[in-house]
Lab assay of single mutants.
Amino acid sequence: TDVTFHVNGRNLHLKGADEELLRRIEELIRRGADIEELEKAVKEWEK
C-alpha cells in the first residue's frame, strides 16, 4: 500500500506499507507524535 500522511505541514510518504505499519503510524499520530517519531517508526519497520 502506498499512502501519504500529512503531519504538521510535512508529508510522510510510505511505499509498500503493510497493515501493521499503518496501524502503528495512526496510533502515533493519535498520541500527537511529531514527524521525526513517525520517520523513526518507519525506519524500524523497514529493517
Rank of each mutant, 00 (worst) to 15 (best):
T1S: 11
T1N: 10
T1L: 13
D2L: 07
V3Q: 05
V3E: 03
V3Y: 10
V3I: 12
T4W: 08
T4I: 14
F5V: 11
F5W: 03
H6R: 08
H6D: 11
V7H: 05
V7G: 02
V7C: 08
N8F: 02
G9S: 02
R10Y: 15
R10D: 14
R10A: 15
R10W: 15
L12Q: 00
L12R: 00
L12I: 09
L12T: 00
H13T: 15
L14H: 00
L14S: 00
L14Y: 02
K15H: 11
K15A: 06
K15W: 06
K15Q: 07
G16I: 07
G16S: 08
A17I: 10
A17C: 07
A17N: 03
A17Q: 02
A17L: 05
A17K: 03
D18M: 03
D18T: 15
D18N: 12
E19F: 11
L21N: 01
L21A: 03
L22N: 01
L22K: 06
L22D: 00
L22W: 02
L22R: 05
R23W: 09
R23S: 09
R24T: 13
I25D: 00
I25H: 00
E26F: 09
E26H: 11
E26A: 10
E27A: 10
E27W: 12
E27V: 10
L28G: 05
I29K: 01
I29F: 07
I29H: 04
R30V: 12
R30N: 09
R30I: 12
R30M: 12
R31P: 00
R31Q: 15
G32N: 06
G32R: 03
G32S: 05
G32F: 04
G32M: 04
G32Y: 04
D34Y: 07
D34W: 05
I35A: 02
E36M: 06
E36G: 07
E36F: 07
E36R: 06
E36Y: 08
E36I: 07
E37M: 13
E37D: 12
E37P: 02
E37N: 06
E37Q: 11
E37Y: 10
L38E: 00
L38M: 08
L38W: 01
L38I: 06
E39M: 10
E39Y: 09
E39R: 06
E39L: 14
E39F: 08
E39N: 06
E39P: 00
E39T: 08
K40R: 13
K40P: 01
A41T: 11
A41V: 11
V42G: 01
K43H: 13
K43D: 11
K43M: 11
E44D: 14
E44F: 08
E44Y: 08
E44C: 06
E44V: 09
E44N: 11
E44G: 08
W45C: 02
W45N: 06
E46M: 09
K47D: 13
